[in-house]
Design a protein around this nucleic acid. Structure first.
Length: 484
RNA sequence: GCCCUCAUCGUCUAGUCAGGUCUAGGACACCGCCCUUUCACGGCGGCGACAGGGGUUCAAAUCCCCUUGAGGGCGCCA
């Protein structure tokens, strides 16, 4: 069982070398859910020990994505780059106790060793040549300021560890070579820093991706060597692309910001991510944050990797869109409409009620807020082409021009432009001409929107208004005449 | 190559830990029907899986072994 004897403290520790991707977001979400479930603390730590690849701008990006998803943290962000003295103290301690040693091998030499090992057909393990250096030799190299790293002296051990997802697991340290804990540039490596920090920050549960699974024994040995108690581990399965390959920029949209920009709702993305590798155990799917928190547990995380299915995310997003009130819809969709150049921010606010009507009439027809600009475009401009197949089907009828013209005339002369009168005008015209209502409706839709599909024609015309409707019907009538 | 992990419909999963209630449940996607002015929504129905082979057992999707497949790791990246 999960250790609940002390207050839960978990952390999300991204490295600022890229955007927050969906896998990282899911890891963050699981940590967050676990913290909230147990009334614990969710800590944010930036793992920027790689002086070369870390980028401050990425920190902002990652934080923005987390805020967007609603993953608020209680402490941090802490930066590893500001905590080097802590790591150095630990490294000195290990060195002094003979649990680590200096290594003067340079990158080139190591590369050769690695290649040779692989050619022989085996995994590379450092051969400890620097461990076996004589004391005089070490002093000499130190005095000469030869660049040096520090390696952890891997003891012979078979660390037994419990993982909340995988259960009891055992490792054999003979498969692990002495790894570097301090680089020649003075910075600590991940393996060392993560242990020192998790201990220092009082982390009780380390919830992270399965790609860290093989780090368990290394870190366990460091905990041991430093005299620390290791936290509980929970390694969650990875998220794969449709090809079952690692999710990457090449095969899918991976950055959380991509989904934000294409008009997904954060609630839907979080809900979807929560269900990737975890399930409440019953058949619930659409779940609020509160419900997720209530139902979440490490034990019900699945062991198998999951494929990211955008189709299901879109469906789920559609479910969330349908839950929105007209006002919420307006607030959320407005930026997308403005960005698409359909109208200015100011005119959006001026015509708020009208725009709300548009958004609501399309609410069941969009799956992403980002679908709105193209779905609603014809409300904002008369400058559109007629759907080709629609033209062939609706506008090649010799009657069509006449029908459109007559309908335009009726609308123009009608004083009342209510939904009811629009419908009765259209149906009335069909009756008089002794044709089916659909023979009027379909050409009229094409004339008014350029499309063969869309919301109820009566409602759409009501929103469009009398002037625009009449204008479009006349324009279409002229178009049909030229065609015939 | 070596080490590790995982394995239920095309996809996400329930069921596996405590073997029988599983002719394996739900969701997405797909197909059909209904609703309907089209599309969508919604409703109803269909298609569709325990990777393979050995054991253990009265009984295995569930336990054990092997094979296969997939993923991860083997960095002075994290």
């Amino acid at each position: 069982m999960e250790n609940m004897t002390k207050d839960v403290r978990v952390r999300f520790a991204p490295s600022p070398t890229g955007y927050l991707h969906v896998g990282g977001a899911r890891t963050a979400l699981f940590n967050w859910l676990f913290a909230r479930k147990h009334g614990g603390k969710f800590i944010l730590r930036i793992e920027d020990t790689d002086l070369v690849r870390s980028d401050d701008r990425m920190v902002t990006q990652i934080l923005d994505s987390m805020k967007w998803l609603g993953l608020d943290w209680d402490e941090g962000p802490f930066y590893q780059s500001q905590r080097f003295s802590l790591y150095n103290a630990a490294i000195e301690k290990l060195l002094a106790e003979g649990k680590a040693y200096y290594c003067f091998c340079d990158a080139e030499k190591l590369k050769e060793m690695r290649e040779a090992a692989r050619k022989r057909g085996g995994s590379f393990q450092y051969d400890r040549r620097c461990l076996n250096l004589g004391q005089d030799e070490i002093e000499r190299l130190l005095k000469q300021n030869v660049p040096k790293a520090v390696r952890f002296l891997v003891p012979e051990a078979k660390p037994k560890v419990h993982d909340a997802v995988h259960g009891d697991i055992a490792f054999d340290s003979k498969n692990i070579g002495d790894f570097v804990i301090k680089k020649a540039d003075g910075s600590p490596t991940y393996q060392l820093a993560v242990v020192v920090d998790d201990h220092d920050m009082g982390i009780t549960h380390v919830i992270r991706g399965d790609d860290h699974y093989n780090n368990i024994p290394k870190q366990t040995m460091i905990y041991e060597a430093l005299g620390y108690t290791a936290p509980q581990f929970a390694h969650v399965p990875l998220i794969l692309a449709e090809s079952r390959a690692k999710l990457s920029k090449r095969n899918a949209a991976v950055a959380v910001s991509d989904y934000r920009e294409s008009g997904f709702m954060p609630e839907a993305v979080a809900n979807f991510l929560a269900l990737l590798g975890w399930s409440p155990g019953d058949n619930r799917e659409i779940m609020s944050k509160a419900e997720l928190i209530e139902a979440f547990s490490l034990g019900s995380i699945s062991k198998a990797n999951a494929v990211f299915d955008v189709k299901k995310l879109e469906w789920m997003n559609g479910q969330y869109i349908r839950l929105l009130s007209p006002d919420e819809l307006f607030e959320r969709a407005k930026p997308l409409l403005v960005d698409a150049g359909l109208l200015s921010e100011k005119s959006a606010d001026d015509k708020k009620e009208w725009i709300k009507n548009i958004l609501v009439i399309l609410q069941e027809r969009v799956r992403k807020l980002g679908d709105y600009p193209s779905a609603a475009g014809y409300f904002f401009t008369c400058d559109f082409d007629y759907d080709e197949r629609g033209v062939r089907k609706q506008f090649t009828n010799p009657q069509a021009a006449n029908v459109l013209e007559m309908l335009g005339g009726r609308f123009e002369s009608s004083a009342d432009f209510s939904l009811e009168s629009i419908e009765s005008t259209i149906r009335g015209l069909a009756d008089e001409l002794e044709i089916k209502a659909s023979k009027v409706i379909h050409p009229a839709r094409l004339a008014c929107t350029g499309r063969t599909v869309g919301p109820s024609l009566f409602h759409l015309i009501e929103i469009l208004g009398k002037d625009r409707t009449v204008e479009r019907l006349q324009k279409a009538a002229a178009f049909v005449k030229r065609l015939v």
